[in-house]
């Protein structure tokens, strides 16, 4: 983990003189040396520019235009609307409930995923090697399930009629169930009708699928911490919690920073699972991602206001990203 950290920097300093000496007269492609990296970059740059940056610019443009059926078919050019799409969505209750759903979901799901993942990562580190491998293989199943299938699985588990969750809740003794939830009979409880319970199921689904990645990353980080530090902490009689706070956490801070931002980004734009769990008809349960595409591709399509919502979402994500990129560049060894 730490072994290679200073190498690239040293290499950079020595590369130029060292290279000049090593180069024999080249029977090369005829390209000047300085141009080679640029030539290699061309295909990648073209793809990024044409399929990511250009659409990004286009998205912003469209958000100020009216793009409906006639404009899509090319019979009429896009109409310039100014801020109308934006004022339109800001006036819409669905926008605000989508924004609330997006932010609240991330605020709950991100810490839950991180805490559970870290706990499992620490657990994996303390388990024997066979047991650790066993658990890693287990959590990899949850991690590997495609997002659409995750949604399908949890929709099935929370099914009103034949779902296993309702069956399990019915197993609770009546007094306990009544004391906890104010009800004893869970048969036919429709979990996926109401926004709050949809998001509860979505949270469980996303945390379930997301914690394995955190756990394995934390484990990778933990393996790089010298064992002597823990040895010393043990000799000094440190409690496990204190050891975590004073040794593990500070040393793994950069890992946690990246994991946090990645989780925020993933959870802010969660789509597939929500699409399966809530469908496109339940507008109350939209998040910004769902709202943007359903608005853009509804009948008749309103690409302009869809794009405006997408712009809002992208701005939120880019603000979060700024922290991530700064973190990456602090590493200084790109």
């Amino acid at each position: 983990m730490t072994k290679t950290s200073t190498l690239p920097r040293g290499e950079r300093n020595s590369a130029t003189p060292g290279r000049r000496r090593a180069h024999p007269p080249r029977k090369s492609s005829g390209l000047p040396v300085w141009s080679i990296p640029y030539v290699l970059l061309i295909p990648g740059l073209v793809v990024i520019a044409a399929l990511l940056l250009y659409p990004l610019v286009q998205m912003v443009t469209i958000s100020f235009q009216k793009v409906g059926l006639v404009q899509i078919s090319g019979r009429r050019p896009a109409e310039w609307l100014g801020w109308e799409n934006y004022t339109g969505i800001f006036d819409n209750d669905i926008f605000w409930s989508s924004l609330r759903n997006t932010v609240l979901f991330a605020v709950v799901a991100v810490p839950l995923t991180l805490i559970l993942g870290t706990a499992v990562g620490v657990l994996l580190h303390r388990l024997g090697s066979k047991m650790s491998l066993f658990v890693i293989i287990g959590i990899m199943f949850a991690w590997a399930v495609p997002p659409v299938a995750q949604g399908v699985i949890w929709r099935w588990l929370f099914d009103a009629e034949a779902g296993i969750i309702n069956w399990a809740l019915n197993l609770l003794p009546d007094w306990l169930s009544s004391a906890l939830f104010g009800r004893a009979d869970w048969t036919g409880e429709p979990w996926l009708n109401d926004t709050w319970s949809i998001y509860m199921v979505l949270t469980i689904c996303v945390v379930w699928a997301g914690f394995p990645f955190i756990a394995v990353s934390v484990l990778a980080g933990l393996k790089g911490i010298p064992a002597e530090l823990y040895e010393a902490a043990r000799v000094d009689g440190s409690t496990p919690w204190r050891t975590f706070r004073k040794i593990t956490f500070p040393l793994l801070k950069p890992v946690f920073a990246v994991l946090t931002v990645l989780s925020i980004i993933w959870d802010f734009k969660v789509f597939s699972q929500l699409y399966v769990l809530a469908g496109t008809n339940n507008r109350e349960a939209f998040n910004l991602s769902m709202y943007a595409v359903t608005e853009a591709f509804k009948a008749p399509p309103k690409m302009g206001s869809g794009a405006a919502i997408a712009v809002v979402l992208t701005i939120i994500l880019l603000i979060v990203t700024a922290a991530y990129i700064r973190q990456m560049f602090k590493q200084e060894e790109l």
């Binding site: 659409p55 998205m59 991602s289 591709f297 979402l313 992208t314």
Partner: peptide
């Protein structure tokens, strides 16, 4: 560019 959501790209890409 990795942070640009696919939900945002799909509208211009569709066109």
């Amino acid at each position: 560019v990795q942070m640009i959501p696919a939900e945002a790209l799909v509208i211009p890409l569709f066109l």
